[in-house]
Simulated assay, not measured.
Amino acid sequence: MAAFGTVFMPEMAITKFENGEWTSTKNVPSDSIPMHPGAHVLHYSSTCFEGLKAFRHKDGGIYLFRMDQNVKRFQQSSELLKLPAFDAKQVEEMIVNIVRQYADEVPAPPGSMYVRPTHIGTEASIGKAAAPSSSSLLYVLLSPVGDYFAGGAKPLRVLLDETGMRCAPHMGMIKSGGNYASALGPILSAKDDVQADQILFCPNGDVQETGAANFILIDGNEVITKGLDTSFLHGVTRDSILTIASDMGMTVSERDITVDELLERAAKPNVEAALSGTAAVLTPVGTFIYNNKEYTVGSGEAGATTTKLRHALNDIQWGNAEDKHGWLVQV
């Protein structure tokens, strides 16, 4: 089976911002885009993207999950990067129409159609290091994917890093390629040095997020995660999991948490930790690595509450449970 996110539908939806306005949406081949070598994005990283999924239900219907929230965050990222503003309705229509075109290609659960809206600055100007791009390109790619963890979600080994940050503090809430690139070097070093699967960035002891996912701690009936600020990504999956936990009667605490508190709680037998994101949904963490010492999180295995929350979210996405929050949009 092809690696997750490496297969694409033959066409993508695209629109351009030129001469102060957006063009009508059209579909073009998804394997190439015309771009000048001096394009702003290639030199000054004026790029942001989103990741959401379309799911096939048992009745054959295709449903997008929380598209409105992803488009809202997409607008926010574009605004903070000073890319041209776009109309949310146009982008939602682009997503719905291209998914509808390839509805027959949406896999059955646990697979899905991964949807990747992307916005890039295209002005050919290498003299604009301190100025925004006056033109841009916005497109929607589709990639049919299977289960992110085809062999089962084994608990991850996570290095706690108090010295670095995933990205600049004011850039954390932007879903931009540069943020992922800046975290790549430390993550690869952690894999080589201590066989970690990911880094949990904790600058000055403040527990934030990993290189590609939000972090959640579960202690009995309480779910603890950092409160929203500009330093880390405001995950849609994170928000969904917290909402489901609240629906189940759990206590949701969005607040700062220190490395000291994290390690103290991790020693308790009923504590669980997990990473949340669109691709991996909710993935258990079994081991923390800190100052060359390993700390087992709870039992070290996937906990019952993590599994329950993951299944509850999947059941809504797959149409096996009531969508009482109106998260699904049929295409």
Score class of each variant (00 low, 15 high):
residue 167 C to W: 11
residue 147 D to N: 14
residue 113 M to P: 02
residue 9 M to R: 07
residue 162 E to L: 09
residue 249 G to M: 01
residue 123 E to D: 07
residue 40 H to N: 12
residue 53 K to F: 02
residue 224 I to G: 03
residue 191 K to C: 03
residue 48 C to I: 08
residue 65 F to P: 06
residue 233 L to C: 09
residue 263 L to D: 03
residue 62 I to A: 05
residue 216 I to M: 15
residue 279 A to Y: 12
residue 42 L to M: 13
residue 202 C to V: 07
residue 180 Y to G: 11
residue 267 A to L: 06
residue 321 A to Y: 09
residue 177 G to D: 11
residue 18 E to H: 15
residue 225 T to E: 05
residue 263 L to W: 04
residue 180 Y to C: 11
residue 324 K to G: 15
residue 125 S to F: 05
residue 207 V to A: 03
residue 4 F to V: 01
residue 313 L to E: 01
residue 269 P to E: 06
residue 120 I to A: 10
residue 315 D to G: 06
residue 115 V to Q: 02
residue 109 P to T: 04
residue 182 S to N: 14
residue 306 T to W: 08
residue 228 L to R: 06
residue 11 E to T: 09
residue 90 Q to F: 12
residue 136 S to Y: 06
residue 80 L to P: 05
residue 253 S to N: 11
residue 237 T to Q: 12
residue 111 G to P: 01
residue 190 A to T: 02
residue 252 V to W: 07
residue 80 L to R: 15
residue 104 D to I: 07
residue 144 P to T: 05
residue 196 A to T: 02
residue 321 A to V: 04
residue 129 A to V: 09
residue 312 A to K: 11
residue 36 H to R: 10
residue 39 A to P: 02
residue 134 S to C: 06
residue 291 N to D: 08
residue 102 Y to N: 00
residue 328 L to N: 10
residue 288 F to K: 01
residue 84 P to V: 04
residue 85 A to S: 13
residue 15 T to S: 14
residue 293 K to L: 12
residue 101 Q to M: 09
residue 273 A to E: 04
residue 271 V to R: 03
residue 118 T to P: 07
residue 5 G to C: 04
residue 294 E to R: 14
residue 282 L to G: 03
residue 23 T to H: 13
residue 306 T to V: 14
residue 129 A to F: 15
residue 72 K to R: 15
residue 297 V to P: 01
residue 89 K to V: 14
residue 167 C to K: 01
residue 51 G to E: 01
residue 291 N to W: 11
residue 110 P to V: 02
residue 102 Y to S: 00
residue 190 A to R: 03
residue 108 A to M: 12
residue 330 Q to Y: 03
residue 287 T to H: 01
residue 211 G to R: 04
residue 177 G to C: 10
residue 223 V to W: 06
residue 110 P to I: 06
residue 18 E to V: 15
residue 184 L to M: 11
residue 168 A to M: 10
residue 269 P to A: 10
residue 130 A to M: 10
residue 292 N to R: 14
residue 105 E to L: 08
residue 285 V to Y: 01
residue 83 L to D: 02
residue 117 P to Q: 04
residue 189 S to Y: 09
residue 291 N to I: 02
residue 140 V to L: 09
residue 28 V to E: 14
residue 116 R to H: 13
residue 196 A to H: 03
residue 143 S to W: 05
residue 181 A to N: 07
residue 7 V to L: 11
residue 185 G to T: 07
residue 122 T to Y: 10
residue 326 G to V: 01
residue 53 K to L: 03
residue 285 V to N: 01
residue 24 S to K: 15
residue 75 Q to P: 04
residue 304 A to D: 10
residue 187 I to W: 00
residue 47 T to D: 10
residue 10 P to Y: 00
residue 185 G to D: 00
residue 63 Y to I: 00
residue 6 T to I: 07
residue 135 S to E: 12
residue 275 L to V: 06
residue 32 S to R: 14
residue 71 V to I: 15
residue 195 Q to D: 15
residue 56 R to V: 06
residue 65 F to H: 07
residue 197 D to K: 11
residue 257 I to W: 04
residue 73 R to P: 07
residue 132 P to W: 00
residue 112 S to Q: 02
